[in-house]
Simulated scan of single mutants.
Amino acid sequence: MAIPQYQDFMTPVLTAFQDNKPKNHSEVERIVVPQLHLTKEDCAQLLPSGTQTIVRNRLSWAIYYMYRAGLLQQQKRGVYIITEEGNKVLQSGKTINNAFLEQFPSFQAFQNKTNKEENKQEETDPATRISNAIEEFNKRTQLELLEQLKTVDPVFFEKICLQLMQSMGYGEKVSLTPKSHDGGIDGIINEDVLGLDKIYLQAKRYSTNKVNEKEMRDFVGALTLSQTQKGVFITTSYFDKKAIDMAARKNIILIDGDKLTSLMIRYNVGVQTKETYQIKELDLSFFSED
């Protein structure tokens, strides 16, 4: 049988969460497959890339769209639970699809942004459209990555930030400072083998709070005492205006949540390549008689 489109997965997927227990994609798939009367052969069909089944791909998009509408909440990467709004939708007995989801403000905002991008794509060449599609996938991963970072242990977050700096090519050696004697500095990056040139790192794992002027002043003071001119301040949140102004005066590099996740994707920290596609073009040299 033909495998249903991702919108057809939405209602059975949300129903799979009606017990109010968190589930990952595999658990949801085991519940949904019988409801949709999918065979083993259906479940074995792969995308053209050969790296994921069509069923898992469409189920994942159904989860993602309902997450954007607020019917599902992400507990950690790949694990979701139904929200109060999601339970209300189930109780209504209505069929869920994109048209139904448009009543929710968060989904409207998501769709408006997506539609603008699609309208732009209509005027672009295929290569650009592929590039834009990859960017959309990465934006989805950025969102999930940021939510995951906000839940990790603060010390582990500091380790992640140091690993990112090293992956970006900064430092022969990186190290955490002991919590009891950090002096306002979470990590030290030695840019040369002897450690003559150092970058000091401050990392704040916040869910909602912004980094304020006081926290920036403390970091500036720590740099001054250490007689180091290079500093990087990383947060999962944002910096308020006074903190930004102070950092600019002291040449401190600021990395907020959006930039952090973008860099992590670019330098493959905390993410992995899911699929690889090959684009074929005509080899004119093959047909040349010279």
Rank of each mutant, 00 (worst) to 15 (best):
S175W: 06
Q163M: 12
G171Y: 00
Q148C: 05
C161R: 02
L176H: 02
K150T: 14
G169V: 11
F156K: 11
E158L: 01
T177E: 08
P154F: 09
V174R: 03
S180T: 14
L164K: 04
I160H: 02
L164G: 03
D153W: 02
F156V: 13
G171I: 03
E172A: 11
K150Y: 13
E147M: 13
S175Y: 08
K150P: 02
S175C: 07
Y170E: 07
F156G: 03
Q148F: 11
M168F: 08
T177C: 12
K173P: 02
C161Q: 03
P178M: 04
G171S: 06
K179S: 13
V174P: 00
V155M: 08
F157Y: 14
K150R: 15
S180H: 10
S180N: 10
Q148K: 12
M165T: 08
L149C: 09
T151S: 10
H181T: 12
L164V: 10
Q163E: 15
G171C: 09
L164C: 07
L164T: 05
I160Q: 13
M165L: 15
E158C: 02
V174C: 11
T177N: 12
L176T: 03
Q166K: 15
L162D: 01
I160W: 04
M168A: 13
S180I: 09
V174E: 00
Q148Y: 11
K179E: 13
T177P: 01
V174S: 05
L162P: 04
P178R: 15
P178A: 12
S175P: 01
Q148P: 02
S167N: 13
Q166P: 02
V155K: 11
E158I: 02
T151M: 07
L176P: 01
S180K: 14
E158P: 01
K150A: 11
K159F: 04
S175M: 15
V155D: 08
Q148D: 14
E172T: 12
E172S: 11
M168V: 12
Q163C: 10
Q163F: 07
K159H: 10
E172D: 08
D153Q: 05
C161P: 01
E172P: 00
E158M: 01
K150G: 06
T151F: 04
M165D: 04
P154L: 09
L162N: 05
F157N: 02
V152K: 05
H181L: 12
G171Q: 01
V174Y: 03
F156H: 10
P178N: 14
H181C: 05
K159L: 12
P154I: 09
G171M: 03
G171D: 00
S167D: 08
L164E: 03
S167W: 04
V152T: 10
F157P: 00
T177Y: 07
E158R: 02
S180P: 00
Q163A: 13
P154N: 12
P178I: 08
T177W: 01
P178S: 13
I160Y: 01
E158V: 05
T151I: 10
K173F: 14
S180C: 03
M165H: 04
T151N: 11
K173S: 06
V155H: 06
F157V: 06
L164M: 13
F157K: 00
G169C: 09
P154G: 07
C161M: 06
K173G: 04
M165K: 06
G169A: 09
C161A: 15
G169N: 07
Y170I: 09
S167V: 07
M165E: 10
K150H: 10
K150D: 06
V174G: 02
T177H: 04
